[in-house]
């Protein structure tokens, strides 16, 4: 168990520098900051498995790597299966005395929404069900950004992507996003959460919490995408914050089946405030019916979370 779950930035800055400089992420991409928070949050050494995607591509163009920790990339859809193999080997080698018994290592897999919601869902489900001791971090930029912005099942309703283009007849994606955190929670794992880089304190606490429990854990983190969402590159953190303030991206956690919303905006903003700065929604700014549909979806999910949160563990009743 981590000594305490929160860290201030001074403490964090002494624990990590994050990714090394020189990686090729787009200017303003928020996932390097997310990685910094995660690597800094970990008390023990970590080994990382990374799904194919932007993060893998921009941080490891041979012979340059930006990773300060052992890192393995296998393929697109199998980060969870890969880390489950690493973790299994660790257990076997400990048991056989081939590595010292006091050598504590934590295992973290990173995947984007393509590698997690879609092509890698089976691998993730399998690894969680088997109960491997690892943290899966989903950085959700709501589309296949690495291949040039195509829809994923994380892409929001009405968003324009190159495979859900806003056309004369069809106004972008015709389906709402899938609720992956709920799907993961249905595996009855010890800990699942949603976080945002804008709320760094909450994010770091969640990572420390996840790394302190035995068994599979999952954190879904919103990661705005400059070219994919279409906004000025200085706005990444601001947009992540707007996603939270509009309740588009609720910050919550599911611990042993019990839900807790970690942040309830006192004066929630209408979802349009989150949509407005993004070019992928530009075509619906004059379509109040579509904006209303997104608002309805956001409100409904929020209501559902409030309802789920009512069930409290025995000691808190």
């Amino acid at each position: 168990m981590a000594e305490k779950l929160t860290l201030n930035l001074k403490e964090l800055s002494k624990r990590t520098e994050g990714l090394a400089s020189g990686h090729r992420a787009c200017a303003g991409c928020p996932f390097p900051a997310i990685i910094k928070m995660i690597l800094g949050a970990a008390d023990d050494p970590v080994v990382v498995a990374n799904a194919t995607g932007c993060m893998e591509v921009v941080t490891t163009i041979f012979p340059y790597t930006a990773w300060p920790v052992p890192w393995i990339h296998n393929a697109f859809e199998n980060a969870a299966a890969t880390i489950s193999g690493v973790e299994s080997a660790y257990k076997a080698l400990l048991r056989k005395g081939k590595i010292p018994g006091n050598k504590k290592i934590k295992f973290i897999a990173f995947g984007g929404d393509g590698g997690t919601y879609d092509i890698g869902l089976q691998s993730l489900s399998g690894a969680i069900e088997r109960g491997h001791n690892f943290l899966y971090v989903l950085y959700d930029n709501e589309g296949y950004m690495n291949t040039g912005i195509q829809r994923s099942s994380a892409t929001p309703f009405a968003a324009h992507t190159t495979t859900s283009p806003a056309g004369k007849v069809i106004p972008g994606k015709t389906q709402h996003r899938k609720d992956l955190t709920e799907i993961v929670a249905a595996h009855n794992l010890p800990y699942a959460a949603q976080a945002s880089p804008s709320h760094w304190n909450d994010l770091i606490r969640k990572v420390r919490k996840a790394l302190s429990v035995e068994g599979p854990t999952f954190i879904s983190i919103i990661s705005p995408c400059v070219p994919g969402w279409g906004y000025p590159e200085h706005m990444s953190i601001e947009l992540a914050k707007l996603a939270v303030e509009t309740k588009f991206w609720p910050l919550y956690e599911v611990e042993n089946g019990y839900y807790k919303i970690n942040y309830k905006p006192r004066n929630p903003l209408p979802v349009i405030e989150f949509l407005k700065p993004q070019a992928r929604f530009k075509h619906i700014l004059n379509r109040p019916d579509l904006i209303e549909e997104i608002q309805r979806f956001v409100d409904e999910r929020w209501e559902r979370l409030l309802w789920l949160e009512q069930r409290k563990p025995e000691e808190n009743k």
Partner: peptide, 14 residues
């Protein structure tokens, strides 16, 4: 890749 004191990158973009 369990040698955390000598981190390496396995499977980079090539």
């Amino acid at each position: 890749i369990l040698d955390v004191d000598n981190p390496i990158t396995v499977g980079p973009l090539d």
